[in-house]
Design a binder for these strands. Structure first.
Lengths: 115, 115
DNA sequence: ATCGTTCATCGTAAATATACGATGGGAAAA
DNA sequence: TTTTCCCATCGTATATTTACGATGAACGAT
């Protein structure tokens, strides 16, 4: 018995989960959108565009920076944020692959009682 | 002063964040993969394929079920899980749109000091 | 040098998430 | 009916997340 159960998670699974975690809050979903719409960088205007205090926005930015989705650049007294294009492309690609693979099977769904 | 800061998050932002949250753990990333590979349903084999206790796997399944990414179907003593095809297509599409829009701008990145 | 602006960080409180053992219910099998 | 198997849920401990006010560092402007 006890099938060893050694299997750890792959780097890929951990990576996807980590990115998903970084995007798992509406504020961070929106921040990515805003930074991208602003085309280039931005700073504390984010605070005005979000229903959150400055300290909280800063924390969310930190989380996005942690996974590399955005970059911050000190520009005088302000800090200029922008999306990290390379990382964004990688992530876009990885999630597309992930979802596409999920969609591949025949998907003989169980009776949709959903329980 | 105080620009009102009324802006709440849109349903769309909340939806994307909620799905991302459901996928924000390696176990759940993997469970989706496993359920999809098994083509149709599955049950406690998941427990054998994951480095987690049965109660924990059950909790992860519950989270995936919460957002509608999977369905459970009682089949005798077992419970049969499978991905929810419709929801998966919707999510695939929504994330693709989200990422593609993020990728649209010119992305005049800030100096990559990253700070 | 002092002031105002812009942020990051600290400290902290409350809420959520993660993990597991133990318990219990429901259905097939004995 | 009793046992067995499969799974959900409860209870619980620990860790992480979220949010905010307060503080302080960095810089430009005065």
């Amino acid at each position: 018995m006890a099938t060893a159960k050694t299997q750890d998670f792959t780097d890929d699974e951990i990576f996807l989960a980590d990115i998903a975690k970084a995007l798992s809050h509406p504020a961070r979903i929106k921040i990515m959108k805003l930074l991208s719409e602003m085309n280039a960088c931005m700073c504390g205007e984010l605070v005005n565009l979000l229903p959150l205090a400055q300290a909280t926005v800063s924390q969310h930015l930190k989380e996005l920076k942690r996974v590399g989705l955005i970059q911050g650049d000190i520009d005088g007294p302000k800090v200029c944020y922008c999306v990290n294009v390379e990382m964004l492309l990688r992530v876009t690609n990885d999630f597309q692959n992930y979802f596409n693979n999920l969609n591949k099977g025949e998907k003989i769904s169980c009776k949709p009682k959903t329980k």
